[in-house]
């Protein structure tokens, strides 16, 4: 069963129910990242128990220069 979500504003199709932990292993790059799902921060300690739902909007952020 395919599931449509958005990741950093881009449409993504998932083929099966996935935990945030599994999803991040596939999509997050090396180094520090952090995640918000539907505008809510999800700490790393909750990745395993968070299942991605159809229509979820996931934001993955990484360090960047800032002023």
């Amino acid at each position: 069963m395919n599931m449509s979500i958005t990741v950093n504003g881009e449409a993504v199709e998932l083929k099966e129910l996935t935990s945030l932990d599994q999803f991040m292993r596939q999509h997050a790059q090396d180094g520090p990242t952090a995640v918000a799902v539907n505008g809510q921060f999800v700490p790393k300690s909750q990745y395993r128990e968070t299942n991605i739902q159809a229509g979820d909007a996931i934001e993955i952020v990484a360090p960047m220069q800032g002023g």
Binding site: Q29, D30, G31, P32, V61, A62, P63, G66
Partner: peptide
């Protein structure tokens, strides 16, 4: 030193190079 976060970008290796350097 001030820093920020942005959507991870494959072109910039998610800002990791910047962070490693800083």
């Amino acid at each position: 030193v001030t820093v920020s976060v942005r959507r991870q970008d494959p072109q910039q290796k998610g800002g990791q190079d910047f962070w490693s350097l800083l």
